[in-house]
């Protein structure tokens, strides 16, 4: 009896510090920002926030084309980068499935891009992509091709951001998928071999359906992560040229922190949060089933 009671106390004793910390440091700021989102507060000129109801939300959603263009850029970016990463990752993982010697070496090697500070990645690429003296354009010129305005052309710059993100995260897709392939049961493949299935049939009918749940999970994870895109924009293009690469998180940062428009910034944070939360809920409900 005493033992059971102590058990009841002890489990909360262990859990509470963590819950308390998260409530104070995560839930409290969020509710604070929700309250602020219904106010007007230009912190550079106003002492205190001024209640304005839903004006901020109305302004952002109906009167702010820049918000919509930032959202549109972010959505296009997320879609493209995740599709390309999944394509290359899946292709490589399938190609090397069963045939991969020195995989521990490659595993460590491929971890490097994603372990680097994203801001360092941004600046390394910014150096290489410099329109006049960057190594990439110099190399292109050497082999007789035209220079590309990687960061200064409205058309090319969004794809440059996608390219760098693909560089950073494709190895991640590859490693997860490769591990998933290796964990598949051997017997099914034997059966397929006995039945004389072709390589492509094996992939389409066996491998792909078996790893599909993992693909869904990592695609969701990458989508949520890709929405957070900030450092690459900050480092490589600073949202330019002509706001062509302004991601939602960067616009939120400009509005709320740089321009100190705390009310509008909070409202935009919440819209952003709700978008990501929608995708997160799908992922969370999948993860909930797994534990």
């Amino acid at each position: 009896m005493k033992y059971a009671y102590r058990k009841h106390v002890i489990k909360w004793f262990f859990l509470l510090p963590c819950l308390a910390y998260l409530i104070v440091m995560a839930i409290f700021p969020l509710t604070w920002s929700l309250r602020l989102s219904f106010t007007k507060w230009l912190a550079t000129i106003m002492e205190n926030p001024e209640w304005t109801g839903i004006t901020n939300f109305r302004d952002i959603l109906f009167k702010d084309p820049r918000f919509w263009s930032a959202l549109w850029f972010t959505v296009r970016f997320v879609f493209l980068t995740v599709v390309i990463q999944l394509g290359i990752g899946l292709g490589l993982a399938h190609l090397l499935h069963n045939n991969f010697r020195g995989r521990n070496f490659f595993r460590v090697l491929f971890l490097i891009p994603m372990a680097c500070p994203p801001i360092a990645v941004a600046f390394l690429w910014k150096m290489m992509l410099h329109p006049d003296i960057g190594i990439i354009n110099t190399a292109l010129q050497t082999i007789g091709l035209a220079k590309v305005k990687w960061t200064t052309s409205v058309v090319v710059a969004p794809f440059t951001i996608v390219m760098v993100d693909v560089w950073e995260w494709t190895p991640f897709m590859f490693l997860v998928l490769f591990a998933a392939f290796q964990a598949l049961p051997v017997e099914i493949y034997d059966a397929a071999a006995v039945d004389g299935a072709s390589n492509f049939q094996v992939f389409r009918k066996i491998t792909f359906p078996l790893v599909a749940p993992i693909i869904v999970t990592i695609v969701l994870i990458r989508i949520i992560d890709a929405f957070k895109l900030f450092e690459l924009i900050f480092g490589i293009t600073s949202a330019g040229p002509a706001n062509a690469t302004e991601a939602l998180s960067f616009y939120v940062y400009l509005t709320g922190i740089k321009w100190m428009n705390l009310g509008k910034g909070s409202a935009m944070s919440w819209i952003f949060l709700l978008i990501v939360l929608g995708i997160s809920l799908i992922l969370l409900s999948r993860l909930r089933k797994k534990i």
Binding site: L19, L30, F227, W270, L284, R288
Partner: peptide, 27 residues
């Protein structure tokens, strides 16, 4: 349940950091 608590804890990781920097700054 354990699952619910664990998932709630994890949900904190999914917020875009930029969405909470304003209240952090004020805090």
């Amino acid at each position: 349940k354990n699952k619910d608590i664990a998932v709630w804890i994890l949900s904190n990781r999914m917020f875009p950091p930029v969405a909470v920097v304003i209240p952090y700054f004020l805090f």
